[in-house]
Computed example of a mutant assay.
Amino acid sequence: MSFPVIRNRRLRSSSALRSLVRENQVTVNDVVQPIFVTHGEGIKDEIPSMPGVYHFSLDRLEEEISEITALGIQAILLFGVPEHKDAIGTSAYDDKGIVQRATHRIKELNPSLLIIADTCLCQFTDTGHCGVIHHHPITGQADVHNDLSLELLVRTAVSQAKAGADIIAPSNMMDGYVQAIRAGLDEAGFDNVPIMAYSVKYASAYYGPFRDAAHSTPQFGDRKTYQMDPANSREALREAESDVIEGADFLMVKPALAYMDIIRMLKDNFDLPVVAYNVSAEYSMIKAAAAQGWINEEAIVMETMTSFKRAGADIILTYFAKDIARYLQNR
């Protein structure tokens, strides 16, 4: 055999050597655990389409927060499922709303746990849409009114910050939402509270189980007029650039698994932390296949998370966060 001989396998010959040259690592500090809090008492109800994920009432939160804390997870993404819904999502910006009360309680249980508050109206409106419905005066067609919705989203963000949320995460995809929320937070004295923008949120089929969890299925139509077309990638750069200009502190891509090219685009074009949201159907598909014995769940989960990191994600929002923390502890 003539010289030179390239032997790339030299760096794969042992576990220690493979670890030494590994380019991407997943740690417990990379993952955020979403949790769902609901009204009532004594509630810990498993979400049928999301095995291992639960609705918790406020009086049952302690066991979940204690488990998350013990596993070393540093942050949660908080969703609220209210008792009352109306056309303008009043309970989203009620200072005594479910998210606000849960935030107070979590801060009592663990003051150092980062609370990322999902800032949207879809769980709180009786339409299931992410804003205020407006009917066109001529055609009568119903759609979400962008600027009227912004006013309520600002009120929601300020109320969440007042309750103690560490990060505001607006998931509504209204035009100008980052600028409006940034101005509202600053005016209210919360200039230190960062915004985790859902910068690139696709109108995806991967959200189905979440809508069961958040009780946020649209009662008519869909969200394609404000969430992105899955076929588009250049548009993602325009969306992210808008959020950067308006003052975002993080840029999120949602979903993650089918959109790793978009994660890489944001990483290559912007210098803010990039967040990947490993969404509900991505979680449920793995859980379902593992339950059938078709796949090795731990291996698939960790390979997927490593792929997000390789694509450029700095932070991963995932329903697997607690599982990942256990996997890492046992290695």
Rank of each mutant, 00 (worst) to 15 (best):
Y319A: 00
I315V: 13
A313V: 12
T318C: 11
E298T: 15
A311M: 04
A313K: 11
S307E: 14
E303L: 03
V301T: 10
M305K: 05
A299C: 02
G293E: 04
A313L: 11
A321N: 06
T318V: 10
R310H: 03
E303R: 04
I300Y: 01
M305C: 12
W294V: 13
V301W: 02
D314I: 05
T318N: 07
I300H: 04
K309T: 11
K309D: 12
T318S: 11
F320Q: 00
L317W: 01
F308N: 10
R310I: 00
A299P: 00
E298V: 05
A313E: 11
E297I: 07
A321T: 02
I316D: 10
I315P: 05
T306I: 01
N296G: 02
I295N: 03
S307Y: 06
A313S: 14
L317M: 12
G293C: 04
I315R: 12
M305P: 13
S307L: 13
D314S: 09
A321E: 03
L317V: 15
F320H: 13
A311Q: 08
I315T: 10
D314L: 10
N296W: 01
G312D: 11
A299K: 12
R310E: 05
K322A: 08
G312S: 14
W294R: 14
T304W: 01
A311H: 04
T306E: 11
L317E: 01
T318I: 10
A299D: 09
G312P: 14
T304S: 10
T304D: 02
Y319D: 01
A299Q: 10
A311N: 06
K309G: 10
I295K: 03
E303C: 07
G312H: 13
T306H: 08
I295P: 02
L317P: 05
M302G: 07
M302A: 10
L317G: 12
I316Q: 08
M302S: 10
K309S: 11
K322I: 06
F308K: 01
Y319E: 02
E298I: 08
R310F: 00
A321F: 00
F320W: 07
I295M: 09
